[in-house]
Write a protein that binds this DNA or RNA. Sequence first.
DNA 1: CTATGGCACGGATT
DNA 2: AATCCGTGCCATAG
Length: 469
Amino acid sequence: MLQTPYQHTSISTSAHLAQTMTLLSLSATELAEKIESELSTNPALEMVEERRCPMCKRLLPPTGSCPKCSQPESYESTEPIVFISPRDDFYIASSKSSDEIPEEPYAPESVDLPTYVLTQMAGDLAKEDRLLAAYILNNLDEDGFLTTSPMEIARYHHRAPSEITAIIERIKRCDPIGVGSANPKEAMLTQLDVLEETMRIPAHTREIVQDHLSKLSQHHFAEIAKELSTTATNVQRIGDFISENLNPFPARAHWGDVHSPHTENGQVFHQPDILVYHLNENPENPLVVEIILPIRGTLRVNPLFKASLKEVEEQKADEWREDIEKASLLVKCIQQRSNALKLLLEKLVVYQKDYIVGGDKEMQPLTRAVLARELDVHESTISRAVSGKTIQLPNRKIVPLSIFFDRSLSHRTLIREMIDAEDHPLSDSEIKDMLEVQGIQIARRTVAKYRSMEGILPAHLRHMSRPTR
DNA sequence: CTATGGCACGGATT
DNA sequence: AATCCGTGCCATAG
């Protein structure tokens, strides 16, 4: 029943293949950029802003939802519903204004970042300070960091360095809190300062941000714990706190690309490429899988452009034909991308349903190779389709799609649960034996590794100090 | 002597 | 071809 649609479809210049592969590996955000640039350079391509019901494909009025599909009662099937969901609220094309700021991805009100920040502070700044602030803001890099040193700016503007830093401090407290910092650490520290005014912050948080960020991102909780003489679980909690409340890349608050590392439960990921949830938020209902297609309306070859091809002088016609060719290629490839993702997700969601519904420990071990065989596509196709994409689970967590192929996640959480419930510090080999009873065979050494990945101290340092629930 | 962490090897994955 | 992951072996700490 599940077949690759394009094995028999015989369009096959190498360009097709190459482009399909490229598009497949793009995340929604990246795809949006690609489409945008294509739209602005290729006159043959157009976007018609019509809305179709994501589920039944019927044409919809400009606002409102599909009259037929908005009644969730009509779904009896237990099969997950997988569909492609074009949505424009996902991505607002940023105006590529000056070359000062190359395509800043931050766009809360579709203003560029410097303007956005400046308006927040303009009120209580002297005119010359405002200019200075504007200058600084325009020199931020794409992550919202200030890479020029205050000294340099001071010299350039003939101002005292202290004045510069004072303004930078002001900037840092503006909305994407931490903008204008020199680096992620500084940004996070600023966020801590601001947070501190309204809530309690776990002890040691500041020290960890200050000195142990790199270890934290590598999950070396135990090491950090040792240095701060506290427990690894505590460190891990602080890690959770940090990833929930602090954003190392303030300017990526809403967008950001997927290259940033993710921490334990930490979601440093931003816009998901795929959404999974229960229909109507009701766990009884089947799962709905939305694959985000970051466009509003439909992308197609402009029929007018095509029609007027005949009326153009011969030499231009070639060029035009090429544009049309490229446009239709892009459209086809995007369809293929969507289709491939859809097929992939249909399998994936069924296979990992327990995980999606039940949480980490239900994760099934799965390799790309197996899935590739089932879908009858090449492994690398799966790889591309999975890489760089994120998925939002019903519990609102956004995780990388590649988590579905994490062989050890279930084991790791199992181990953590065992230790959480222990009444006597379990040694690694004891854990290994217990797992064996449950039918899981892994080496003692591996248990140790998982344990440290989970940020759990070795048995002899653990004792029974554990304020868990 | 036992429990762990480090290093490194080989097979799987990308 | 490069990288990641599970594992075995060995040194070290307790």
